[in-house]
Design a protein around this nucleic acid. Sequence first.
DNA 1: GCTAACATGTAATCCGTTACATGATTAT
DNA 2: ATAATCATGTAACGGATTACATGTTAGC
Lengths: 185, 185
Amino acid sequence: MKRRPLLDYALLGLLAQQPMTGYGLRRVFASTPMGVFSDSPGSIYPALGRLERDGLIRPSGQSGARAGSRLLTPTSAGLSALRRWLSAEITREDVARRIDELLLRFAFMDRHLDAALVDRFLGDLAESASAYVNELRAYARSAAGPPSSTGRLALGHGIAAYRATAQWARRAGAEWRKSHGLDVS
Amino acid sequence: MKRRPLLDYALLGLLAQQPMTGYGLRRVFASTPMGVFSDSPGSIYPALGRLERDGLIRPSGQSGARAGSRLLTPTSAGLSALRRWLSAEITREDVARRIDELLLRFAFMDRHLDAALVDRFLGDLAESASAYVNELRAYARSAAGPPSSTGRLALGHGIAAYRATAQWARRAGAEWRKSHGLDVS
DNA sequence: GCTAACATGTAATCCGTTACATGATTAT
DNA sequence: ATAATCATGTAACGGATTACATGTTAGC
């Protein structure tokens, strides 16, 4: 099971919220904060081709009366793949290098995972982000630390950003538990 | 003048701090928060090949008595290219999609730009990040806003993260001005 | 003598970007 | 009519990842 590009999961997650055409997906990327992904046809259509080839999505009708347009929907295999991706453990590498992927996963979670699992994700994220803050602080203090003054300040940005992430995760967890009647017993 | 990959500037910036071998650069990526870049030889050596082919770096000796090792140093053309990259205007796209690149630029700045320009960079970054926070908030309130509950919370993370960036930039600016005798008159 | 660290590369494959290309439908 | 929007693709190119491949030097 080779690693699937993040774009594939972004498309799969959006189609699971609402069947759309390729053009509709492009509009999402062009006009929302999901715009970290390119809206160019040269990335979207090949990705949709991959997903269809692998049986994760299928065409399910036309958009309005428009000839040639294809509304796309995840298959059950597609939903399984999505759930597997959403359920993966949070690793140190995810936090250090793929924080955007973790947030994308979270954004899609409510439709596909139990409330308790969503809560666990936020708890793990808060913990991992704090651990990474400690790592960055240790590096800042170490002899191998940043050699330049702006380098030191830039490291401070990393620390501030991950602190903000940890804090957000704790607060979001509290909010989530409140609105879902969960509580740490 | 085609766009150069970020990795090239990361290498150029590191070599401007200290001439190193390719292996030394790999170690930096493997053992510091610069680890957002891959330390695999398959990315580093082709990138160094590009930089040398384009006359931005040149070999300048051996590491110790090790045969075959090449210490690499930026040429004056390389330093110019680095300064051009460091001096570019901050765009909305930089903030929304390439925030890591902005921080990398900042980390290398002190050696290559005037203190006043570094200060201006931080001011512009604080302003751009705040503007982007407002954009995200407007989107959160809009009818097109996030359709799911975790989607809404994830957007909240984006807002929190960019708020942290703006705050960091203001504080770092204050610190920088203090240690460089600059002051807004 | 052996292992870890130092050191540099190449090949296959896949993905993303950019540019090109086409056509239908809706609104003005 | 004509422009904007809807809609789907392909081709060339370059870069990143992964795996392969090789050889030296220092420390134990």
